[in-house]
Design a protein around this nucleic acid. Structure first.
Ligand SMILES: [Mn+2]
Ligand SMILES: [Mn+2]
Ligand SMILES: [Zn+2]
Ligand SMILES: [Zn+2]
Lengths: 144, 144
DNA sequence: CCCCTTATTGCAACAAAGTTGCAATAAAAA
DNA sequence: TTTTTATTGCAACTTTGTTGCAATAAGGGG
């Protein structure tokens, strides 16, 4: 669900009976970023514009409406605008040094997603594939 | 890292200079379950045997030692003994009703994991593949 | 088996994260 | 403009996770 501007945001909201408010405009503004952001960051960026509680409520709503994705990075989740139908979050994550390697292979994954979602008549919105283990460097030095 | 019994737990711990304590035995007992469990569940199962704080500390330790995996289910993480070299955690998770559907297809996934980890000389310990979206029921009934 | 050293525990106190009820307010519709 | 209804902010609360520290218990050596 791509949101181009405030107008398209308003349409998405009103189509479902929700109102476009100042708080929601500000929530959307805070989400504009090249990187996924933590809830704490969004709250801080909007301080004295959007109340904490309202931020939680609107992020929940936006996620339900498909405007944002919640992804896991390390041990916590972050939020991002779901600009593309399906962003790719596939990575190898080293449990020792924390290094994250991105996997490029869209081919296999997209085929797999289609076959499995079709089977269950599931409407996919977002996915994430993570392999935890040890990178080549940390595998070599096996201590601790 | 498979832990067969208390003896093997003691070995894993002492090899790294950690002690086997009553609290750690009870932590291990609480982890015995066919399902991944939340931190809250583990704490409750061990109430008046292991202090909350100690539970957090020992779960952290166990994860570092490879005894437990932390996986994400819906919006939160759960913990499980890493009995098998690589447990399968592939699921479809409904953003609306929270229902989780397990994906059985090991074939494609294992092939994919092997190809990608080989490519980067990465030593996998655990993986997780999650597709968020809407189940057949919630897809049908649109709003809210 | 006892002593000694050191890791580990429990507790209290705190910090961070997320939730709920409700009266006041601001959208949107009429 | 008036009416209707969703939304907000606030206060209070619950849940989750962290830190410092004195008391305790595990394990090794004698
Ligand atoms: Mn992808
Ligand atoms: Mn599974
Ligand atoms: Zn590494
Ligand atoms: Zn559902």
């Amino acid at each position: 669900m791509k949101v181009e501007n405030i107008q398209s945001l308003k349409k998405i909201l009103s189509d479902k009976g929700y109102k476009l408010t100042k708080a929601r405009e500000n929530t959307f503004s805070a989400l504009l970023s090249p990187e996924p952001q933590s809830m704490a960051t969004l709250i801080e960026k909007s301080q004295n514009k959007v109340d904490r509680v309202t931020m939680y409520r609107n992020i929940d709503l936006f996620e339900k409406l498909g405007i944002v994705n919640r992804i896991y990075v390390g041990w916590k989740y972050k939020l991002e605008l779901s600009d593309n139908f399906m962003d790719h979050h596939h990575h190898l994550s080293c449990l020792s040094c924390g290094k994250v390697i991105d996997i490029e292979d869209e081919q296999h994954i997209n085929e797999f997603i289609k076959s499995v979602t079709d089977k269950f008549s599931f409407t996919p919105r977002h996915h994430q594939f993570e392999i935890d283990g040890f990178c080549i460097v940390c595998s070599a030095s096996k201590k601790k």
